[in-house]
């Protein structure tokens, strides 16, 4: 028996709980950055930024991937392993596509002469969206590990916890992205 789990069967699994605390921690980091943005945007010499439309494409991709991972989790619990593998694989591909679209958005901004020079909305965008993309990439590594485990017999004990943890994290980076998008749409322009 896993001693991490004994005598607390009624409670949330510690790994899931740990993830929720970690999410609180990550929220603080992005709250720090977006409040720095607000403080700076009220000072002199602020340069606004308009989001390239490609970020809407990445938003669609991100939302879709949230759906696929939720379906993957459900098929895992229903023990439909083939469907599960396909959906996890799809989520990984969508995650990669999201990062590619983000990169395209950065390139379009760069082409508009919004470089690292200065400290306006564009520079904050590079830092904040870049950091978000890093967190998506981190999630991708976790998903890739789970995806591979789906082929090599580790799922025989049918513990859904790792998949649940990954899915929750993935929904979190999705929600975080929506927050950042809305934030930049409303506050980035002025």
């Amino acid at each position: 028996m896993d001693i991490v789990r004994n005598q607390q069967k009624e409670k949330m699994h510690p790994h899931k709980f740990t993830l929720w605390v970690a999410i609180g921690s990550l929220i603080m980091m992005f709250a720090g950055l977006t409040s720095a943005f607000i403080v700076k945007s009220n000072q002199a010499n602020w340069k606004p930024v308009t989001l390239p439309t490609v970020f809407w494409v990445s938003t669609g991709v991100m939302l879709l991937s949230s759906l696929t991972i939720q379906l993957a989790l459900r098929s895992f619990k229903d023990r439909e392993m083939n469907k599960y593998r396909m959906l996890i694989g799809l989520t990984v591909l969508l995650g990669i596509a999201f990062i590619v679209f983000q990169w395209m958005g950065f390139q379009q901004l760069w082409a508009q002469q919004i470089t690292f020079k200065g400290s306006g909305g564009g520079q904050f965008l590079y830092v904040i969206f870049g950091l978000h993309a890093l967190h998506v990439a981190g999630g991708l590594i976790a998903l890739a590990v789970i995806f591979l485990k789906g082929f090599f017999g580790k799922t025989k004990n049918y513990s859904a916890v790792p998949v649940e943890v990954a899915a929750t994290y993935w929904h979190f980076v999705d929600a975080l992205w929506i927050y950042l998008l809305v934030f930049f749409m409303i506050l980035g322009k002025n």
Binding site: S25, M29, A31, G32, F116, K117, S119
Partner: peptide
């Protein structure tokens, strides 16, 4: 858990200012 990430965000902006030419803290 709630305060260290904010320091990290400050340090990231500092790294950008030092190495990539941004001006978050410089004027």
């Amino acid at each position: 858990v709630l305060s260290f990430p904010v320091l990290l965000s400050g340090a990231i902006l500092l790294l950008f200012d030092r190495n990539l030419g941004t001006s978050f803290y410089l004027s």
